[in-house]
Design a protein around this nucleic acid. Structure first.
Lengths: 352, 352
DNA sequence: CTGTTAGCGCTTTCAT
DNA sequence: ATGAAAGCGCTAACAG
């Protein structure tokens, strides 16, 4: 995989396009188009954004000049004046796990239908979310999508001060900044535990990543176990972000503890898959010798050959519903209730 | 997974933040800060962007007012004047396959180090790439990342006219718009074929998605087979985007053809995994009864229990190298040679 | 339906 | 080291 230079030293020529108007070096502007078309700037502006306000003849002429000159409206200038950027900023922790991609795609698709573009912010690896958001707000997005509900007080203040519609997603909270689309991680954790209990499992180990939402699920999980008088036989904490590899390691460490283990609960399907691979390598039967319970990444889980049980989240719905909530507000309507619970499903495979 | 309204009708209060300056309804501006700090607007601007040009005392005072008022610079206005948006636009076909996420992450990470943000454009599902790009160019990005090398002539012209640095990625081409970071899909396809041939396979079937780059790989694949005097025994074309499910279907259809099949080549690891699942369900041994060859999505392939052979791409390197090429140009330097070949690796598992 | 005027909030340029 | 003037390219508001 050695990077190598290919022999293609092509440089762009300093092309002078835009025939019909002479713009030495700079881009074609609205005024250039207006001049050539013999109308005023505002007429060109209207021809492009509100064509119904312009005579067909004028419209025709303007369009001809626009396409001939290759005019591309400067959205920055327009946004500055109109105070609408038609940008929705979306902040995700990272995208290397496949967990968020469906949400991003659905969000993007839905917003584009209404003419909005998504400015994606990734707060992974050290960049603090509040710094990222501060930078993003400077771009004057019309709305904001945030992942999660825990934010620094300073950021919360700044976001509120920006007065744009906000959706926090993937989570529920009694005190959202504005709107909310998610599900209860505590309930999801509890559902994982109850499922294992309902299958008769009592010797349960945990392989759990150390991220914020995962830890909430863990509380729900442990509480539901405790309710049944069960305590996990062993637990292994893993660093976020979780991965296939860490899942292997998680099970290995649990088994090394020497405790008898009949089921393993993993904070993500990612981990669960790793655990399954490790178990198979050790000659264990799934779910005969070891039941595996995962969480969240449906397609990912679907690729596992020995099936695991898991919690299914409609990730695309989160993106779509968030987009729609924001769009409602952007359209001046009151929008949906502040909180939308998208819920989750327990997906149980035979005898797991 | 029934969406339900939660009882949390919280509305944001019309908070009036920004103590120390009275801005009725509108956001705090540079001039507001200047007024309060008792300096001119330009001094505030300098205090924020070139602090070395300002007296420590002034700097201190400005900073105090900035943080007290919660001033967030309007980047739109700054960009309009300075003609630098510090945005790099990146266009990908879609992100629901995991194929591109590492590239996006690496691109984003590297660009952020130099203060650039990524505007992500997804050209999936019908929206034509050139329309998307036209919209994006209106935001005056400082640079452009494109996936692939086939673009409409109109788009090519428009991109050239914008005079910003451009990287086309994932592919090589003799006539790039500007710079290029990728690998030869034809060579990759040929490598797949040669690998199977080297393992003695002659009864080879194809399950191939119908996307642009995949079809180039197919040509390379078939050419390499032909060189060895081999023709595929059967072929199944599948609609893009490829998926696990389509992989299952692909193998099923190939087997239904009744031809004797000892190896299957898939245009993506995604498909390969589906094919494996289907084979296992039918009681076939992998690779004993059927060798499986995939392409591209390393981590994905790593999760397969019966190993497949595949072509490994360093997807993160593509993002990182593309970012660096663009940054070089943005810094006014000449940048790297026009084309960077990141190459690929044949990852062979035992006896596949 | 079309035009004029003004100014969005910032940074460039030139002056002090 | 700081400031004044000008204007980036566009659209809101009002006028005709």
């Amino acid at each position: 995989m050695l990077p190598a230079m290919a022999p293609s030293p092509k440089r762009r020529p300093p092309e002078s396009l835009a025939p019909g108007v002479d713009t030495p070096g700079r881009a074609v502007t609205l005024r250039d188009v207006a001049k050539v078309a013999g109308v005023s700037a505002i007429t060109v502006s209207r021809a492009l954004s509100r064509p119904d306000l312009v005579t067909p003849a004028t419209l025709e002429r303007v369009r001809e000049v626009v396409s001939r000159t290759g005019y591309v409206p400067n959205v920055l200038a327009g946004s500055l004046k109109s105070r609408r950027s038609r940008i929705v900023a979306a902040v995700f922790p990272q995208i290397t796990t496949t967990l968020f991609v469906d949400t991003i795609q659905a969000l993007t698709d839905r917003l584009r239908q209404d003419g909005y573009q998504v400015l994606l912010g990734l707060s992974a690896y050290g960049e603090r979310e509040d710094e990222l958001v501060a930078g993003i707000l400077g771009r004057r997005p019309d709305a904001l999508f945030l992942t999660g509900i825990r934010h620094s007080p300073a950021m919360r203040r700044q976001v509120l001060a920006s007065r744009i519609p906000v959706v926090e997603a993937w989570d529920l909270s009694p005190s959202p900044i504005d709107m909310l689309v998610g599900f209860s991680h505590e309930a999801a954790g509890a559902a994982m535990a109850r499922h294992l209990l309902s299958r008769g499992h009592r010797e349960i180990g945990l392989a759990w990543a150390d991220d914020e939402r995962a830890l909430v699920r863990r509380q729900g999980f442990l509480a539901a176990l405790a309710e049944a008088g069960v305590r996990p036989v062993a637990e292994c904490r893993l660093e976020a972000p979780s991965s296939f590899h860490l899942g292997r390691e998680g099970l290995a460490r649990l088994l090394a503890s020497g405790k008898r283990l009949r089921a393993i609960a993993c904070s993500s399907d990612n981990l669960a898959q790793g655990a399954i691979a490790e178990a198979l390598d050790r000659g264990m039967a799934i779910p005969g010798d070891l039941a595996v319970m995962g969480f969240g990444d449906l397609e990912f889980a679907a690729h596992t050959t020995p099936a695991l049980s898991t919690i299914g989240i409609d990730k695309a719905a989160i993106g779509r519903l968030a987009a729609e909530a924001l769009l409602e507000r952007l359209a001046g309507r009151e929008g949906p209730a502040a909180a939308i619970d998208v819920g989750f499903e327990v997906l149980a495979r035979a005898s797991t």
